[in-house]
Design a protein around this nucleic acid. Structure first.
Length: 797
RNA sequence: GCGACCGUGGCGGAAUUGGCAGACGCGCUAGACUUAGAAUCUAGUAUCUCAGGAUGUGGGAGUUCAAGUCUCUUCGGUCGCACCA
């Protein structure tokens, strides 16, 4: 008998998909498991080995759960709106619909060749009008609750893609998509009030089974800080105005020796006439505006600023007059755009004070302010601080907040780095925003009955140079009537960002064809939360937070009953090219899974991608190492020629089951596979395998290599199908052998080995050493350390 | 700069309540089979060695009967955050 992957794999794929073996049907009496992978963007270049790694983990868990008796939902779909398709459409003058459909077909074909156990009847596509109808519906609900609003702001605009980018899409001033430099532009922008959910998004993390690393990233992204708004007075010769600064260190106010405000802070204009150095101030403002955000951000950069001559501020606690500066290390976007500078206890203020020769007053004892700022928030002792003197920092913070609240000069405030979510793009290939602008009524939501608001047909998808959407050119689509007053009105011409469709797709899988609900309540009641969600680290802030936000919103309006969408999240590492670099077309190191399947078969590919290394770390693709998996599967296949009833000594199947069972649950696929290999090696040593042993091995290997094991199970068991089999149990009492080899150490050095019963007493072990080795001859025993079953260490003289 | 993680053969990587370092696989060496190659199989594969041992998990120190594992220190790498007041 020879193992022929080509034939076997085709046979079983046909069997699985034609018989809908993986169809998920709600069965109220059976325990459910909902496994989710991040649905792919159907790009023209097809499936990548990175996808294989990302998908195969949940594929293995899903197949294992099926064998463990769970009713499994393991769906697949396509996140198909987005720029690459649109850019391709512009270039080739092909409608994005056609491009998308073609790519989806290719992805489906490729994924089926791997043998994935997806439910192919639940496939969703975010660009399908029956899908985006509900994306629009959710947006409308948010609009009605006041969570979607339009505001004029400076936005990050990519002149190349002609599109407004979210902050996260333009980090370091570079467009995420095309790498060109981003410019600032004033525009009307739709926002979703994600900040209103900041606290819940933060608090919710406690209950979730996410790796600590992911929680930390989300916490950083939300960026909570506790502090206070404090009122300072700014004055010139004639007038005085109030300015609010934000600080997390109200305890240090007595040490505030100057004020720093952002160059674009509006108060500058209010005092512009009193400034003695207008020229200098204007020049600094101009420079600051020129600097890109990513330049302003670098701490290594030397501090710079300009004093506003002619005005000063008054410290509300000391009543002393202190100078005011504009400096670009204070940003308008955060807090109030103004700070009180306490050089003795803040590194940045310290640097600035040193450079401009400003007074540094110590208010907390404990550091050496001659050398550097003392920034610790723990302990310390307040000095030079009036009524705070003698307190430690936490006490002082509390006392100062109480004092300021009472005097009306300050109020406690919690701030977040996270901004509201800029929720529109000037592109064609996205969900149209279902809002109508009426001359009389303003922004009017579309009637839900009229959803979906379909994309109009178009020949030219090029965005206009003025940064407006291509949809703006379709006047017959744009011009409409107001749903409220029936008067003349126009549609929103912007579309939603790509993150929209992926923010709720896991819900749609539960009832993908329901025309009455985004998610069918009955289906939701059964499938509920996603039990396990695997995907990339690059999505743990944006996508994961956005979708948690949407789910919380849907929870608030009663559409779902769990506040959190995903119980457990894991993330795979990257697959690098054979050269250790990130796979990319330009480096010419991309591995196409189709080629691997052609040469080795799907089972070998699946097994190798899991065996390649630590699942959560990146690993280079080694084109030679894959042969090891091919050899192993051949060897495994040939076990069928070795079936014989006999003693099961020599190969510990129970231990193997336990190890594989546990390792699969913790994503240690590499060691699970190593254990199966090791056990098979033991069986080859012994020369035969019992049918019972083989069946167990076949079943535990099945999630990883389903084709070969389905075939083997059928052959070994007279035509029986493996999906009816049960995941094997292991016998706790058989995990270790009764007699074990343990090392004998003399003074901590390995000197011999003895064979003893695994729970022999110390005396028995010692006698064994005396009788069977010479290591104690002529030695005087001082101490014996004996760990039964592990080691014996004898200290001698 | 701050935080987290990591550093083990020629390579990918195993090994945690501290208890045989190098599982498993690749590669390599020798042999078998073959006209030859491929495939397969068998044996070997950390280093040094006076063959008794000695050394060895980035470097240095420490705790311990015992350290890849714990502590301190130092060097190198990956990721995240980064003038957030």
């Amino acid at each position: 008998m020879n193992y022929n992957p080509k034939e076997i794999e085709k046979k079983w794929q046909k069997y699985w998909y034609q018989n809908k073996i993986f169809e998920a049907v709600e069965k109220p009496n059976q325990k459910k498991f909902y496994g989710l992978i991040e649905f792919p963007y159907p790009s023209g270049s097809g499936l990548h080995v990175g996808h294989i790694r990302a998908f195969t983990s949940m594929e293995v868990i899903s197949r294992k759960r099926r064998l463990q008796g769970y009713n499994v939902l393991f769906p697949i779909g396509y996140d198909a709106f987005g720029l690459p398709t649109e850019n391709y459409a512009i270039k080739t003058k092909t409608h994005p619909r056609i491009v998308t459909d073609r790519n989806i077909k290719m992805f489906e074909k490729q994924m089926k060749r791997i043998g994935y156990g997806f439910d192919w009847d639940r496939v969703i596509d975010t660009t399908d009008e029956n899908y985006y109808k509900w994306t629009q519906w959710i947006f409308l609900q948010m609009f009605k609750k006041g969570l979607a609003y339009k505001a004029k702001t400076l936005v990050n605009f990519c002149p190349e893609c002609k599109v407004v980018l979210a902050n996260e899409e333009s980090q370091n001033g570079i467009c995420d998509r095309c790498g060109s430099e981003v410019v600032q532009k004033e525009k009307d922008v739709w926002f979703l009030k994600i900040r209103a959910y900041a606290e819940r998004l933060l608090a919710g993390l406690d209950k979730l089974d996410y790796p600590e690393k992911i929680k930390v990233e989300q916490q950083n992204w939300i960026g909570k800080s506790n502090g206070a708004d404090v009122k300072f007075t700014i004055k010139d010769n004639q007038k005085q105005k109030e300015i609010v600064v934000y600080t997390t260190r109200p305890d240090t106010i007595f040490g505030a020796t100057f004020l720093v405000i952002a160059p674009e802070h509006p108060i500058v204009e209010e005092f512009i006439d009193s400034l003695e150095n207008i020229e200098e101030v204007r020049e600094y403002q101009r420079q600051a505006k020129l600097k890109k955000e990513f330049e302003r951000v670098h701490m290594s950069k030397e501090k710079s600023g300009v004093r506003l001559n002619g005005i000063c501020a008054v410290n509300p606690l000391t009543n002393k007059e202190i100078p005011v500066f504009i400096a670009d290390y204070v940003i308008m976007d955060y807090g109030t755009g103004a700070i009180m500078a306490v050089p003795a206890h803040d590194t940045r203020d310290y640097e600035f004070a040193k450079k401009y020769n400003l007074p540094i007053i110590e208010v907390i004892k404990g550091g050496d302010i001659e050398k550097e700022a003392y920034v610790s928030k723990e302990g310390g002792e307040m000095v030079n601080s009036g009524f705070l003197n003698g307190m430690d920092v936490p006490q002082a913070i509390e006392a100062m907040i109480a004092y300021m609240s009472q005097k009306g000069i300050g109020t406690p405030k919690t701030d977040y780095k996270m901004k509201d979510w800029a929720f529109n793009r000037q592109r064609y290939w996205g969900e149209p925003i279902p809002i109508i602008n009426c001359e009389k009524c303003g922004q009017v939501p579309m009637d839900e009955k009229d959803l979906p608001l379909k994309l109009p047909e178009l020949d030219d998808f090029t965005p206009a140079d003025d940064a407006s959407s291509p949809l703006a050119k379709v006047t017959e689509w744009v011009n409409t009537v107001c749903p409220k007053c029936g008067g003349k009105a126009t549609r929103e011409t912007d579309t939603m960002p790509q993150w929209a469709g992926s923010s709720w797709y896991y819900l749609r899988y539960m009832s993908p064809r329901d025309n009455e609900h985004a998610v069918n309540p009955e289906a939701y009641k059964y499938w509920g939360q996603v039990d396990w969600y695997n995907g990339g680290m690059e999505h743990v802030t944006r996508h994961l937070i956005y979708s948690r936000f949407w789910n919380m919103f849907l929870y608030d309006i009663g559409a779902v009953t769990h506040e959190e969408p995903y119980k457990k999240r894991t993330a795979q590492g990257l697959i690098l090219g054979a050269d250790g670099e990130k796979m990319s077309k330009s480096r010419n190191n991309v591995v196409n899974p189709d080629d691997v399947v052609d040469e080795y078969g799907a089972d070998v590919l699946r097994m190798f991608i899991l065996f390649i290394g630590d699942y959560e770390k990146s690993a280079p693709w080694n084109p030679d190492a894959i042969k090891g998996c091919q050899r192993f599967l051949n060897k495994f296949w040939n076990l069928m020629d070795m079936i014989k009833e006999g003693d099961t000594k020599g190969a510990n199947i129970d231990y193997c089951i336990k190890k594989v069972d546990e390792d699969l649950e913790t994503l240690k696929f590499n060691t699970a596979i190593a254990q199966i290999m090791s056990t098979v090696n033991d069986i080859y040593q012994r020369g035969y395998v019992t049918k019972e042993e083989l069946n167990k091995l076949i079943i535990i290997l099945n999630p990883i290599a389903p084709h070969i094991t389905s075939e083997m199970y059928e052959i070994v068991n007279g035509g029986a199908k493996i999906e009816k089999a049960q995941w094997p149990q292991y016998d706790e009492s058989k995990l270790t052998f009764d007699v074990v080899d343990i090392p004998v150490q003399i003074n901590g050095k390995l000197r011999a080995r003895i064979s003893v019963n695994k729970d022999a007493t110390e005396q028995e072990a010692l006698d064994n050493v005396k009788n069977n080795t010479k290591v104690l001859d002529g030695k005087q025993i001082i101490k014996v350390i004996y760990v039964p079953g592990r080691i014996i260490n004898i200290i001698v003289k």
